[in-house]
Write a protein that binds this DNA or RNA. Structure first.
Lengths: 130, 130
DNA sequence: GTAACGTACAACCACATGGTTGTAGATCAG
DNA sequence: CTGATCTACAACCATGTGGTTGTACGTTAC
């Protein structure tokens, strides 16, 4: 019932999910959710070059999942929980869409005289040839 | 509170989010959540070749987001809402991780009999010794 | 000032991805 | 059987991705 005003472009959603489709980046999100960390601090945690971690952070930043702020010569990375919530909301919306498939149930309850139909949807009649 | 035993590999999570990082594939998931559809039926909905849609379905299938079942010469595609729920749960876990940053408040409320943990401090003193 | 540190960025490489076309095999309709 | 449909799969191409190394520049420490 919560009408979510996502206002996310397809391209933005692409970037968000793509950014999350990497274990290193998910771990960076975890760490920066728990507490801010500089890029170099993050880099020490992974078996890859500093530049590689830098790129991962850039991908996360491009997806809006983290933000960078300058502090002296360091760049402090902080995760944005709202962005994650938006992503989660997208998945929740999908699940609710699925629920709507059986949601004729509500219609049935509101419309008793209707014959109990199978939730096969607006497709052709199921033809089990097996 | 509900301890979800996802038991998802990093590689699996990668595949799930990567599969969701494409507008066409997300739309296929939507359609097949609402009702089953053959690959050729899906293909008519997009401005690309049948083979391209076939590949998208294969990516979704590889991620476990949809399943294919043979029906005559057609392959019926059906989305798996459980898989989507798993993905959502991963994001929820991240958000809860963030909440933990602001104190064991929830932990205290949800875990009364346990001895009071040492106040890890909600301040910016992260020391994630993995 | 000099050296070390943290970052940015470019160039490069191997490989995956998203698309195409083409060919071939099953299956349904006539 | 013949033809149309649906699918599978291979080959190919352009582009993106994840990693590397190297260089340059601002900032901190001494």
């Amino acid at each position: 019932m919560v009408v979510d005003q996502s206002s996310l472009t397809d391209a933005e959603v692409d970037r968000i999910f793509r950014a999350l489709a990497d274990a290193t980046r998910r771990d960076i999100v975890r760490r920066t959710l728990l507490g801010e960390a500089s890029v170099s601090e993050l880099a020490t945690a992974y078996a890859m070059s500093f530049a590689a971690v830098q790129k991962h952070v850039a991908v996360l930043e491009g997806a809006g999942l983290v933000t960078k702020q300058a502090r002296g010569r360091e760049r402090i990375v902080t995760a944005d929980p709202d962005r994650i919530a938006q992503a989660r909301q997208l998945l929740t919306a999908l699940e609710e869409l699925w629920r709507a498939r059986f949601g004729q149930l509500d219609a049935v309850l509101a419309d008793p005289p209707t014959a109990p139909r199978s939730p096969a949807g607006p497709g052709p009649t199921p033809d089990p040839t097996t």
